[in-house]
C-alpha cells in the first residue's frame, strides 16, 4: 500500500516529518495530586498522579520512592466497544514501560519511604498511545510537584515506503512496518526508552531515531510552554 504519495503527502495529509496536532491541559482530575490530558491528533489520554504518599504495602518500604504505574484503555477508546480486561499482557507491558521511563526521571532518592502512583488511561486511541501516555504522565508529575531530573517526552517514528515518518497514526501503525518509540530527557540529551517493532537496518534506524528525537524535543518545548503558562496562572491566583 502507498503510505506516502509521490507528492510527499501521507494518507492524512501530513508530510513525512510532521507531527499531528498536539494539545495538553493540566489539572483534569481535581482529586489527584497532579493530572493532565494529552492529545496527539485523535489519540487522547488522561493521567493522574497520587503521591508522594505513604507506602501501602509495608514490606516494600525502602529509602527510595516507590513508583507504580497503571495503564488502561477505556472501553470506548476504540471503534468497537469491547470490555478490556485490566491485566492483559499488552497493558501490563505498557504499564511497566511507563513506570521504568518515569522512574528514570524522578529523583526517587529525595523521597524515601514514600510511594508515587501514576494512573494513565487512554480515552481515544489512534496510534502512538504509549508516547501520549508518557507525555501525559510527565505533565501530571510536574503538576504534582514531584522532583524530577528533567521532563520525559516521547514520540514515535516509523519507516514506510522507504521514508521515515514521524508520529505514526493508527493506519500507519497497523501497516506492520518498523515502529520506533523513543523517550528522552531533552535537556540532558539522554534516552530513557527505546522500543521497536519489526526490523530495520541499522543505518536507517539512526535516521529514524534522529527524527523521533526531533519530535520529542518539539513536544518538550510545547510541554514547557504549557507548564510555564500553568505556573503563571498559579502565580496570578495566589496574587503574588
Amino acid at each position: 500500500m502507498e503510505y506516502v504519495s509521490p507528492e510527499g503527502l501521507r494518507l492524512d495529509g501530513r508530510r513525512p516529518m510532521e507531527m499531528r496536532q498536539i494539545r495538553a491541559e493540566i489539572g483534569a482530575v481535581s482529586k489527584a495530586d497532579g493530572s493532565a490530558i494529552f492529545e496527539m491528533g485523535n489519540t487522547k489520554v488522561i493521567a493522574a498522579v497520587y503521591g508522594p504518599r505513604e507506602v501501602q504495602n509495608r514490606s516494600q518500604i525502602s529509602n527510595h520512592a516507590l513508583v507504580r504505574c497503571e495503564y488502561s484503555m477505556a472501553n470506548f477508546s476504540t471503534g468497537d466497544r469491547m470490555r478490556k480486561s485490566k491485566g492483559d499482557r499488552r497493558s501490563t507491558e505498557i504499564s511497566l514501560v511507563i513506570r521504568q521511563t518515569m522512574e528514570a526521571a524522578i529523583l526517587t532518592h529525595l523521597l524515601p519511604r514514600s510511594q508515587i502512583d501514576i494512573y494513565v488511561q487512554v480515552l481515544q486511541a489512534d496510534g502512538g498511545t504509549r508516547s501520549a501516555c508518557i507525555n501525559a504522565a510527565t505533565l501530571a508529575l510536574a503538576d504534582a510537584g514531584i522532583p524530577m531530573r528533567d521532563l520525559v517526552t516521547s514520540c514515535s517514528a516509523g519507516y514506510l515506503n522507504s521514508t521515515s515518518l514521524l508520529d505514526l497514526n493508527y493506519v500507519e501503525d497497523s501497516a506492520g512496518g518498523p515502529d520506533v518509540t523513543l523517550g528522552i530527557l531533552p535537556k540532558l540529551d539522554k534516552v530513557t526508552l527505546l522500543q521497536m517493532d519489526s526490523k530495520l537496518p541499522i543505518d536507517i534506524l539512526e535516521t529514524v531515531m534522529q527524527l523521533a528525537i526531533e519530535g520529542c524535543k518539539a513536544i518538550a518545548n510545547y510541554i514547557r510552554e504549557i507548564l510555564l503558562e500553568n505556573t503563571k496562572q498559579l502565580e496570578y491566583r495566589r496574587g503574588v
Binding site: L11, D12, G13, R14, R20, G41, N42, G79, D80, D126, N169, V171
Partner: peptide, 13 residues
C-alpha cells in the same frame, strides 16, 4: 460484516 465508524484525521494545508 460489521459496520464500524472510523475516524481519520485529515489535515488541510
Amino acid at each position: 460484516g460489521k459496520v464500524m465508524k472510523q475516524v481519520r484525521e485529515h489535515y488541510l494545508r
